[in-house]
Design a protein around this nucleic acid. Structure first.
Lengths: 337, 337
DNA sequence: TTATTTTGTCAAAACGTTTACGCAATTTCT
DNA sequence: AGAAATTGCGTAAACGTTTTGACAAAATAA
C-alpha cells in the first residue's frame, strides 16, 4: 500500500532517457528514434508501468471519459440508450460513466459540480431540469437526449413524439374508433407535451372533439397507468380505445385490462408508446409506437465525440436531430368498420 | 473556453492569505482563525470558486468515487444492486460510477486499467472473470457481489443460492412432485453451481434419483429458457415441475408454457429464481425464490466504505456475507397430494 | 516575570504528467 | 561544399492542489 507507484521518472532513469522522451513514447508522438522507442517500451513492460492518467489530465485537461446522465436506471428505455452510447464511446476510445439521478434536480446539479461532472470530456444528458436556463449553464460539450429545450445552447437527439402519438391516434381512427382516450403523466418536458398534441391534433383533424374525460393525467408510473385505465374503463362512458403515452403507463394499462377481465383488442383497444415486455407478452400483442432507443444513444455519442474533437470556434448553432418512429401494428386494436 | 478557471491562488490573493490557508478552509481543517475563515469563504463565494478535485486527488490519492461493475445493465437484478449501492455511496459522500462490461472479461480488465479504474477509491464488482487469480490482482478495496471466489483476497456479499434452490425443490417435493426438472446456464460461477447442487441435494435427500434428462443446461438467456422448457415439455417423459434457475430463464419458461397452451400450476408447475416482471404478471403468479437485490448493493457499499476508511494494516481475513433468500409461494405449483 | 504551549500563517516542496523551447547531430537541398 | 531543414533528445516550466516545516504572535503555565 505504501509502495510508491512507479512513475515515468523511473522508466526514464532505467532507460537512460529524459522523461520527455518517455512521455513521447507513451503518447505515440514522433521525434523519437526507433531504437530508443523500443528500449523505452521494453522498460515499460519490465517495470509494469502504467501512466497516471490523473496527472496527465491535470495538464492537458482531457480525460477520455464521457458521462451519460439518466433519470432512472431501472427503465429499459434508458438502459437501451446507455448501451448505445457505451458502444460508440468505446469504439472512439472513451470510457462511459453512468449516473442515475432518480429524476432529482439537485442530484443532477451535484453531479455536474462533482469531480466526475467536472472532469469528463463531454456529457450525454437526459435531464431532469425543466428550464433551459439550467442547461445553458453547462460549459462542457453536451448532448441532450429525449428531452430538449430551445435556447439551451446544446445539441440534441430527439424522437418524433408528436408524430408517434399522431399516428397511433390516426390508426385508432382508421379502424373506426371515435371515443379514444389518452393516459399520460405531467407535461414537464417536451416529450410528454408533444405526445399529447399529436393525439389532440389527430382527433381534431378527424372532426372528433377531444373530450376532457378521455384525457387522464397522472404520473409516469406503472401504478398510475393501472389506476387511470381502471378509472377510464369504469366511467359512465368508457372509451373503446386507449393510448398509453409511455412504456410504464402501458404496462399498467395492460394489467388493468387483464384485471378487469376485458379482452385485449376485442373489448378494449390499446396502443402503447415504446416497446415493453408485457406488450410483447400478452396475446394478442399490443400495438406500440416503436422508437429507436439504442440508436438514440448511438447518435448522441457520435455527435458528442465530434463536438469534443472539433475546434471550439467553428461550432455553429445547436442542432437537434429528430429520429423517426414506427407504429408496430399488432392485435390490440379492434377493427370497428 | 480559453478562460483559465479560477484557482486557489486567485482566492488566496484576493483574500490576502496564502494558498495553504485557503486549502485549510476548503478542507475544514483547524488552525485558521474565525475571521480569516469567514473572509476566505466569502471570497470563494464571490469568485464562484470550485476546487479542482483532480489536482487534489493527485496529491492525496483519494477521489471519493466508487465504481460498480456489472455484466449487463439491462438486467433488473443488476440495476437493483446498483441502486442500493448508489444510495449508500451518496449518503457517505461518494459518487458512484457504473460500468457495464457485457460479461466481457477484457472489458473488465480495460476498465480496471483505465483512468476510472485506477482512480476510484473502491470497487464493487460483479465479475465476469472465472478465476480467483484475476481478482487477487486487484489492489484497491473491492467487494465481490453475487459471484465469489475463494482465495481472492476480497470481501464479498452473496446470497444463499444453495438454500434457495434447495427450498424450491423441497417445495415441489412436499407438494408431491417427483419428476422435477431444472434449467440453468453454464456453471461458470458459484451462483449457478450452488443452485444446481441445492436442487440435486434436495432430490437426493428425498430419495429421488436425479435424472439427467431432467437437467437442461444452456446459456443464461431468455431464449434458452424458452428453448429448454419446450424441449423438456415435449420430451417422452415430461416433468411435472420445472425449476428455472434465474430471472431470464424463468421468463423464457413462462413464455414457453404459454405458447404450448399449458395451464400454469395445473398442467405444469414452475418455480423461478429471482423475481421478474412476467412472473408477477401471469395468473396464477409464479412462485419464486426472492433474493434481497437492493440490499445486496447496500451491504456491499457499506462494507466497501468501511474498508476504504479503515487503516490498511488492521484488515483481517476476507469476509463473505451471505444474505438469506425467501420462497414467495404463489399459484404456480400444483398440489399433487 | 520568564518559560512553555498553542494558534495562525506562510513558503516551498511535493504529486506525475505534458509540452514549449533549445540545441546538437544528421539529413536534404542548391 | 555550404546552407537549410529535419530529427532526436533534454531542460524546465507548467497544471492546481495538499502538506510539511518553520516561525512569529498570542495564550497559558510556572
Amino acid at each position: 500500500m505504501t509502495n510508491r507507484s512507479i512513475t515515468i521518472k523511473d522508466v526514464a532513469k532505467k532507460a537512460n532517457v529524459s522523461v520527455a522522451t518517455v512521455s513521447r513514447v507513451i503518447n505515440g508522438l514522433d521525434r523519437v528514434s526507433d531504437a530508443t522507442r523500443k528500449r523505452v517500451l521494453k522498460i515499460i513492460q519490465e517495470l509494469n508501468f502504467v501512466p497516471n492518467t490523473m496527472a496527465a489530465s491535470m495538464v492537458n485537461k482531457k480525460t477520455k471519459m464521457l458521462s451519460v446522465v439518466v433519470p432512472e436506471i431501472q427503465n429499459p428505455f434508458y438502459t437501451a440508450v446507455i448501451e448505445g452510447t457505451v458502444e460508440v464511446a468505446k469504439r472512439e476510445g472513451f470510457f462511459t460513466l453512468v449516473l442515475s439521478t432518480n429524476g432529482d434536480e439537485s442530484e443532477e446539479e451535484d453531479f455536474l459540480e462533482s469531480f466526475l461532472g467536472k472532469n469528463v470530456d463531454g456529457i450525454i444528458l437526459i435531464g431532469s431540469h425543466k428550464e433551459a436556463e439550467f442547461y445553458r449553464g453547462i460549459q462542457k460539450p453536451t448532448i441532450l437526449v429525449d428531452r430538449y429545450f430551445n435556447d439551451c445552447d446544446h445539441d440534441g437527439v430527439m424522437i418524433d413524439n408528436y408524430r408517434g402519438a399522431y399516428e397511433a391516434t390516426k390508426h385508432f381512427i382508421e379502424y373506426g374508433h371515435e371515443r379514444i382516450a389518452m393516459i399520460d403523466g405531467e407535461h414537464d418536458f417536451n416529450d410528454g407535451k408533444d405526445r399529447f398534441w399529436g393525439y389532440r391534433q389527430a382527433m381534431l383533424e378527424s372532426g372528433l372533439a377531444p373530450d376532457p374525460d378521455c384525457h387522464k393525467q397522472g404520473r409516469w408510473t406503472e401504478a398510475d397507468g393501472y389506476r387511470l385505465t381502471i378509472e377510464l374503463l369504469q366511467s359512465k362512458r368508457p372509451p373503446t380505445a386507449i393510448f398509453a403515452a409511455n412504456n410504464v403507463l402501458c404496462k399498467g394499462a395492460i394489467r388493468a385490462i387483464r384485471d378487469l377481465n376485458l379482452r385485449m383488442g376485442e373489448d378494449i383497444s390499446l396502443i402503447g408508446f415504446d416497446e415493453n415486455e408485457l406488450a410483447q407478452f400478452v396475446q394478442p400483442q399490443v400495438t406500440v409506437v416503436r422508437r429507436p432507443t439504442r440508436e438514440m444513444g448511438v447518435q448522441a455519442a457520435e455527435m458528442l465525440v465530434r463536438k469534443i474533437r472539433e475546434v471550439p470556434m467553428e461550432q455553429g448553432n445547436p442542432k437537434c436531430v429528430v429520429l423517426g418512429v414506427e407504429l408496430l401494428k399488432h392485435g390490440s386494436v379492434k377493427k370497428l368498420k
